[in-house]
Structure formats: C-alpha cells, structure tokens
Amino acid sequence: MSSPGVLRRWRPFLTGHLPVLPFVVFALFPFYHMVVTSLKSDAELYNPLKVPLWIEEGPTLAHYGLLAQETLFPRWYLNTLAVSGLTTALSVAIGLLAAYALARLRFRGVIAFGVAIFITYLVPPTLLFLPLAIVVNQLGLSDSLWSLVVTYPTFLVPFNSWLLMGYLRTIPKELEECAMIDGCNRVQALLRIILPVAMPGIICALLFSFTFSWGEFLYSLVFISSAERRTLAVGVVSDLIRGDVFYWGSLMAGAVLASLPIVVVYVLFMDYYVKGLTAGSVKG
C-alpha cells in the first residue's frame, strides 16, 4: 500500500481520536482508579511497594461483600433513587413553568424576578441549612425522606429556571403564536408546541437535577438521622469513615456502584444534553 493510502486510512485516527485521547484518559482515570481500588485486597492496597494502578495479587470482591452485608447499602440506593427521581421531576416541572413565565410573559418586574432567581441560586447551602432545619421541623418532616424532597428544590428550582429560561428564549415565539391562532390556549401551546421543541433543554435540566440530588450531602446529613433513611452519599461516609480509619476499598466500591446510574443516564441522553447546553450559547 502506498504511503498516501496509509495516511488516508489513518487520518481519522490521527486528527480525530488521537487528540481526544488525553481528555478521555483524564476523564476516565478517576473511575478506573475507583474500580481498581475497590477490587484490591487490603494487604495490597496498603503496600506502598505495589503499583497503585493495577491489581497484582488478584481481584477480590470482599469490599463489595462488606457493603452488601455490613451496611444498608441497597436501602440507601433505593432511598437515593426515590429522592432524586422525585425532586428531579418536581423541580424541573416548577422550573419549566417559572422559566416559561419569565421568558415569554410580559409583566412588571420580570427582569428583576429573573435576577432574583439567579441570586437565590448563589446562596450556598451551608448558609441555608440552619433556617431550613426550622422549616423542616415545623413541617414535621425531620428524619424523613420528605425533608429532602422539600429542601432539594431550593437549589434545583432556581438552577432549572435559569437554565430553561435561556433555552426557551431560543425558541421562536412565532411557533406558539401560530398554535394560539389555530385555537390553542397558552397552556396547550406550552404542552403541545414548546415542550417537544424544548426537550433537549428539559433533558439537560433533568440530568443536572438528578446528578445534584444524587450526590447531595449536607441537607441529607443534617435532616436525616436514622441509618435506614440515609442517602448514599451520607450512608457510605457514615459507615465507612470511622474516626481516622477509612475503609478505602469499600468506599471505592460504594463510589463505583453509586456512579453507575449517573453514567447510564448520561450515556443515554448525551446528545440531548449537549444540545441543551449549547442551544442558548449562540444568538438565534
């Protein structure tokens, strides 16, 4: 084969895959390290003479066994799934309505409302958890998963509203105006015309909300006390970090299993996600 032929054959790899490779390695390295650490025996894990990047003495499932048998890991998994699913659905629904109102309706103070929502998003949870503790207690939701369903939207709704507001502004008004001329009212126009067009933005908001809820730590730590009601982030840390003793293998096993749903969700909706993120970035 002639050298131009070889070059032509390898060009996609050299110009496409090769430049991306360092970024892929950089992105996947933490996950790889988590998996390798979770499969190593303690004896190997603590031996500084062993190479930390692969398993020399054979893999073990002991750390996964400890998670399954000596902690309430499956229960925490279900709790996190329930809380994340519910808060994501709620906050995206509320955020969409708020974003639509701010992006489409004309009323006095609409800009100020938009800015206020953005500022709300900037208030850190470390400031909010004390007043929220009073609210949660007065609602009678202490030590209940509902306390998280109520409090997570405090940071998810502002974020979703802001994200979707930007996205909805890229959708031509004429689309819904046509629908309304054809007899739709505003809610029907929103549901039948805007919603399908805004799907990439909505999925992007869903993904972000799910990821934030999935990994949230502070509210879950403060508002939940019972072991059986914990979420993953707090459960794993509570049972596997004991004083100055860290159960590294089991912590990594927990991290691997906890990251799987996020990986699956992102893989499934990657295209929508990218579209949703970039839609508002150029002037339409």
Binding site: A133, I134, N137, V222
Partner: peptide, 11 residues
C-alpha cells in the same frame, strides 16, 4: 453541623 441544626430547630 447536625448539632447546630438541632439546636436551631429545637428538635
């Protein structure tokens, strides 16, 4: 953090 929240909420 938990102690601060409990003292604030009185619960």
């Amino acid at each position: 953090a938990k102690k601060a929240a409990e003292a604030t909420a009185q619960a």
